[in-house]
Design a protein around this nucleic acid. Sequence first.
DNA 1: TATTGTTATACTCTATAACTATA
DNA 2: TATAGTTATAGAGTATAACAATA
Lengths: 153, 153
Amino acid sequence: MQTTQSLWNNSRLNDDVAFWLRLAEMTVMKRVADALRPFELRPALYAVMVLIEANPGRKQHEVGEALRVAASNLGVLMETLARRGLIERERTPGDVRSYALTLTAAGADLLAEVKAALDRVLADTDRIIGDRREPFLAVLSDLAGHTALAPDA
Amino acid sequence: MQTTQSLWNNSRLNDDVAFWLRLAEMTVMKRVADALRPFELRPALYAVMVLIEANPGRKQHEVGEALRVAASNLGVLMETLARRGLIERERTPGDVRSYALTLTAAGADLLAEVKAALDRVLADTDRIIGDRREPFLAVLSDLAGHTALAPDA
DNA sequence: TATTGTTATACTCTATAACTATA
DNA sequence: TATAGTTATAGAGTATAACAATA
């Protein structure tokens, strides 16, 4: 049955970057979400943990900017991770309003496990991408506005 | 301020296709959603209309498969479009259970307007992608499993 | 038995506004 | 005045299961 094939071939969507971007993102993120589920983590929570691990002591709104998560939504994510004992929030000395975010030992341990599990899933997508990885990432970064990589100088 | 830059550079996410895919998709689809809002359409509704226009008479579950939208959710979308008089659902002669989907004249008129508005937005992303368009679309298609393009022969 | 489509419900992520407290 | 973070609420999309009607 090649029903869906002809549907796409007849459609303007076949040439539409936006919707192929959407389909590809859905497919990949679904795999990521499935890999995270056994750890009771969702993509947003995992991304927060990775960023905190790589940048300990950062403030909440800094993590939010990097991940494009609104401050209001990030607060809930942080509360979830803190309540599970995976991250720690300490008031910064300089500014009492903000937190310094770090992973707890339990958080670091869990993250190591998660990364291993996720690597198996992402290895699959890496294989699909093959040697097109670098130019592909470049386009994605450009489309994302690469504000997270190269802010207006 | 280059706060977010260092956050990404220190992070494993910097090399992670899944999350760059997510950021790029969010950025582009936000523009699409903004362009559709004046017409009181959402991305999912627009995609349905385009697919019906290009493939008149198709059944509901066929459109759902092409767009990767579950039948349960697609029914609501169709009801929305039908109630606005943008699509028409006629029972197929061969199978009383299924619908033959077509755009109404009003639906076709609206879609033409929407496409013009959307072209202006997508032209912007096209400019960013430049001559990398073809290989970029190829990777996206591969990641999406290209089941919508080349079903198991 | 399998398929087409519907209904209901829950979950995830995002967006917005109003708010407190501090700088 | 501006910033850091919280709370509440709404919206869009997805996922699942149970269901009726038909093939």
